[in-house]
């Protein structure tokens, strides 16, 4: 996702599950069935896959081959090596293993903290009546459109004043803040869908808000939490702007910062760049592919962030 950003609302019509017979009946319905249609679809699929595939092949080729020939000549210049990855991970100049740790250390709290805070806030907006609730919720909702760029100069000077600049703390805090409006909005939408009777029943039994939140709502919200967690995870792991502004020092910078830097200073050393790019991509790809279902659900509920 691209970086990341946010439109309000927009729930696209929810997908409907079709029964098998319905599916078969509808088969020819909307399809533009012609050889041209298939050709276009295949061409698009190839066009979308080739760029990544080419770099992946390259990352396993010996350095000399990469410099002299294109990856499509792989079969006439075979050669498979993990040296590029070794060099990228542990080589003195790139040292991606350290940056990988930084990415992990940045991402985990930056996902856990905003989700927790947003869950609590979303609960209050959905299930506690208080004066000014709707107004406050609209205000939080509206904050989604604020480009994070507009906050960065003042935030940085505050962090410098506090003596925290360039540490993990400011990166966590910033990511948590920037993730909150979307998180509150998304989780509130999911939370409002829970039947009122469930909450009422718990209340009659004498449960307080905290108990209702943990025992009644939380278990039902797991899919929603998963959906937002994936967003926030991809957004934080793949982020460049926040990391570059608040945590570009070597002992804090994540993979994206290092990769962008290498692309600028050693832009023609493809053995390093190709391996580095895949080291940075492997975690989000695994998360994404294994949890795709939740991601799509979040997307359709209006979860796009920037």
């Amino acid at each position: 996702m691209s970086a990341p950003t946010t439109t309000p609302t927009v729930a696209a019509p929810a997908p409907r599950r079709l029964s098998r017979t319905e599916k078969r009946a509808g088969d020819a319905k909307t399809k533009l069935s012609s050889p041209w249609a298939s050709a276009i679809a295949i061409a698009l699929a190839v066009l979308w896959t080739i760029p990544t595939f080419g770099l992946l092949v390259t990352s396993f080729r010996p350095e000399l081959n990469i410099r002299r020939t294109g990856w499509w000549t792989y079969f006439s210049n075979p050669g498979l090596t993990l040296d590029n990855y070794k060099e990228a991970l542990y080589g003195g100049t790139s040292n991606f293993s350290d940056y990988f740790v930084n990415s992990l250390v940045i991402t985990i709290p930056a996902v856990v903290i905003p989700i927790t805070l947003a869950l609590l806030a979303a609960y209050a907006f959905a299930w506690i009546d208080f004066r000014g609730r709707d107004l406050l919720f609209v205000a939080v909702f509206a904050l989604q459109i604020v480009p994070i760029q507009i906050t960065m100069i003042p935030l940085l000077s505050i962090y410098v004043d506090w003596g925290l600049a360039g540490s993990f703390w400011t990166v966590w805090l910033s990511h948590s803040i920037f993730g909150l409006p979307l998180a509150i909005f998304l989780l509130h939408n999911f939370m409002k869908d829970i039947p009122r009777s469930l909450v009422e029943a718990a209340r009659v039994d004498g449960a307080g808000h905290v108990k209702i939140f943990f025992q009644v709502l939380l278990p039902l919200l797991v899919p929603a939490i998963a959906a937002f967690a994936i967003f926030q995870f991809l957004w934080v792991w793949n982020d460049l702007l926040v990391a570059l502004t608040f945590g570009s020092a070597q002992n804090v910078a994540p993979l994206t910062v290092r990769l962008a830097e290498l692309s600028g200073t050693r832009g023609s050393e493809w053995y390093l760049l190709s391996a580095g790019a895949f080291i940075a991509m492997v975690v989000p790809l695994v998360v994404f592919l294994s949890l795709q279902r939740y991601f799509v659900r979040g997307l359709l509920a209006g979860g796009v962030k920037g």
Binding site: T52, N238, L273, P284, F288
Partner: peptide
């Protein structure tokens, strides 16, 4: 969509 824009740019 799962790839960072930095990664996509390198690709």
């Amino acid at each position: 969509m799962a790839i960072s824009m930095v990664g996509a740019s390198i690709i």
